[in-house]
Deep mutational scan, measured.
Amino acid sequence: TETYETTDETEARKIAEELKRRGLTFRIERHGTTIRIESD
């Protein structure tokens, strides 16, 4: 499991693209301005 936290929408998108490219599944949670991406 890898966890990323960012407040930057663009960075979050880049992380999501990278995880997809590596064939990982992940979920995105939003907590206020923080975007949390957690891979399975």
Rank of each mutant, 00 (worst) to 15 (best):
T6K: 00
I37Q: 01
R13D: 07
R30E: 04
E5W: 14
S39H: 08
I15D: 01
T10G: 12
T1A: 11
G32F: 03
A12P: 01
I35L: 04
F26E: 03
Y4K: 01
E11N: 04
K14Y: 09
A12R: 01
E38H: 14
E38L: 15
K20G: 06
I15E: 01
I28V: 10
G23Q: 03
T3P: 03
R30F: 13
K20I: 11
T7C: 10
I28M: 07
K20H: 09
T25M: 09
G32R: 02
T33H: 08
D40H: 13
E2W: 15
F26I: 09
E17T: 09
E5K: 04
I15S: 00
E29K: 11
R13H: 09
K14E: 09
T1C: 13
E2P: 05
A12T: 02
T6R: 00
E38N: 07
G32Q: 03
L19S: 00
T33E: 11
G32V: 00
I35R: 01
R22H: 03
R36F: 08
D40T: 15
L19H: 01
T6N: 01
R36A: 02
R22S: 03
Y4D: 01
A16S: 07
R13P: 00
E9Y: 09
T1V: 12
F26C: 15
L24C: 13
L19F: 10
T10E: 14
A16Q: 11
E17H: 08
D8F: 05
K20N: 07
G32C: 06
I28H: 01
E5D: 05
D40C: 15
E11M: 10
E17A: 13
R27Q: 06
Y4R: 02
D8H: 04
R21S: 08
E17P: 00
I28K: 02
E5N: 05
E5A: 05
H31F: 13
E17N: 10
G23D: 02
E38G: 03
E29V: 14
R22T: 01
T33L: 13
D40W: 15
H31A: 07
S39D: 02
R13A: 12
R30H: 08
R22P: 00
E2S: 08
E11T: 09
D8W: 04
T1I: 13
E38T: 15
E2T: 13
H31M: 10
